[in-house]
Nucleic acid binder design. Structure first.
Lengths: 334, 334
DNA sequence: CTGAAAGCGCTTACAG
DNA sequence: CTGAAAGCGCTTACAG
């Protein structure tokens, strides 16, 4: 049996109320008493029972984080930074990997809520599905219980907060860089119709249009298969002609490198390639991958800071956009 | 205010004891009462307050997982599988990324314990430091409170359990494959002196010896820097001659590929390379990396299964070894 | 089969 | 500055 507040009270010769006060830093305790109690607490290595505290406060100082898959490097990096930032505020977190379909996402968030977390952080705009009414209904419901922070997505609701990269602009600029470097047929690879994917596609299309290049539907390719299948698919699509590729993730971009290698094409000369997220993978592959950096760190920090303000009852902006920048490496020649 | 057991009792016209019984599946409730209560619970969307339950049971059904860094793909894969397995048993987890030094590891485990987790899972033998007495003292202390499961490490203690890959054998076999393929000067790259790193080194050395090749200390290289620094370091070490490299992680092995590329050496012809962990990275790089697969899945499953037996008071083996296998790709020619 | 009551380990008005 | 007491939302012997 662990030592309880009763033990410490008895051993210090005071009431449990006083023990509670010194534990909680209540100033109305005489120095003498406080020291005595502190000494006893230390001697017996007393830690307040967190379950009892939670019951009182109706909070465990715990936030629920859900992401599709912690194996995804982007999400792992996000969780890693969120953790550090949350700890600064004395908060812990429960992680729940939901997988990629909307139903399991709903389920994951539901589980987290049952644990009475203080707030929710959802990593990835795919929690919004295609943003249709019935698909986001669960989020509106959940937001009645706790504040919900969506990283890379946004949904209008009094208790939902979005922190997003400027995906449209970033993709616009990246695409335009390719165009300015003389590329005319730019493949666009994406893996979902999430909010942020759609933003990226919009940026891509707008850049083409603004530069007088018609958008060719054939050059927009949705890829949901593995790396090698992606390569093979590109190899089979002999009808496709392209001198550059831009992808919504680094992993998809690497598929193009595999394709180039198989066709003995030179990168960046024959095909230029740009990825997204600036993951460590970008350095590992050869040639090293030019990629958009989405400032994961800023995003995570802003989200946690805002969440804390929110939990203190302060008024907080509902939408924050974080700037991205292009990290040039060896798969582009500008 | 959420609906409590008192509300449900009042609305169902029974006592809170009965509500508790149906919530907990106690059979001594009449069908009629049960149905009534269930209906009311459903109508009002009642969920028992987890804090109150925890206080009663002195458990949240929560295990603490600590790893050095969730951004590391190996650890992320491990956590991902642990999560699924834990959920099967109705357990959640708190994750704490400790960083790589021993002091922060102690601290991380301490925090987890303060939260009164039911058990501890530590990913990576580095939690053992160099296995010296004072370095593992904290683990012996922690094990007095909860069962401790070390993935990839082992420490003799009544309440500490190890689930490990057969790192020595795996490295022995991999090294021997290189030798049998005609390689004589095999570089060994490692990044720490952890228990499992040491096992790997032992396997490497034994394979050399058993095949009549003297161990050359110069060919054992500890690398703790970044990918590009590793490459540059190899480029600078003009004294080193090697026709193969074997590494304790895939990341380190990729450094050799970078080196080969810079020196215009052919892989696997001029240099053969073997990595460790069979991470997704092995497929991304070019040429694709031969790597040892350590059966993360088996390891995680065994750990959780054993932990559950342990929590049920059953007697459990303290050490389980999981077999590894070599996945041959394009950086070796056997 | 069911309920009244005690207890899990805390916090916090309230009174002194 | 300090303590007695009520209460947070549950579970579980115990009695009927």
């Amino acid at each position: 049996m662990a030592v309880t507040i009763y033990d410490i009270a008895r051993l210090s010769g005071v009431s449990i109320a006083t023990i509670s006060r010194v534990v909680n830093g209540n100033p109305s305790v005489s120095d003498k008493t406080r020291e005595k109690v502190l000494a006893v607490m230390k001697e017996y290595d007393y830690t307040p029972n967190p379950f009892a505290r939670s019951l009182q406060f109706n909070s465990m100082k715990m936030v629920g984080i859900s992401c599709a898959d912690i194996k995804d490097d982007y999400m792992a990096r996000m969780v890693s930074i969120l953790e550090k930032k949350l700890h600064e505020y004395g908060y812990d977190y429960m992680l729940l990997c939901s997988g990629y379909d909307l139903e399991s996402r709903e389920h994951a968030v539901d589980l987290l809520l049952k644990k009475k977390v203080d707030a929710l952080i959802l990593i990835g705009s795919q929690f919004l599905g295609n943003c249709e009414k019935d698909e986001v209904a669960y989020l509106h419901r959940d937001a009645e219980q706790v504040p919900v922070f969506i990283l890379n997505g946004y949904l209008e609701n009094n208790n939902i907060y979005g922190v997003l990269g400027d995906d449209r602009n970033a993709m616009y600029n990246a695409t335009e860089s390719l165009i300015k470097a003389g590329r005319k047929k730019i493949l666009f690879l994406y893996d979902s119709e999430s909010y942020s994917s759609n933003q990226k596609m919009a940026g891509y299309e707008d850049a083409l249009r603004d530069n007088g290049i018609p958008v060719d539907g054939n050059l927009k390719l949705k890829i949901t298969c593995s790396l090698h299948e992606e390569r093979d698919l590109l190899l089979m699509r002999k009808d496709l002609e392209f001198d550059a590729a831009i992808a919504t993730t680094d992993e998809l971009a690497v598929g193009v490198l595999k394709y180039a290698k198989a066709r003995m094409l030179q990168v960046p000369k024959d095909i230029s390639v740009i990825g997204y997220n600036n993951s460590p993978l970008a350095d590992f592959v050869e040639p090293e991958l030019t990629s958009v950096d989405t400032s994961i760190k800023d995003m995570a920090h802003v989200a946690v800071d805002k969440m804390m303000e929110c939990l203190q009852g302060k008024n907080v902006e509902h939408k924050t956009v974080i700037e991205s920048r292009l990290v040039k490496r060896c798969t582009t020649d500008f």
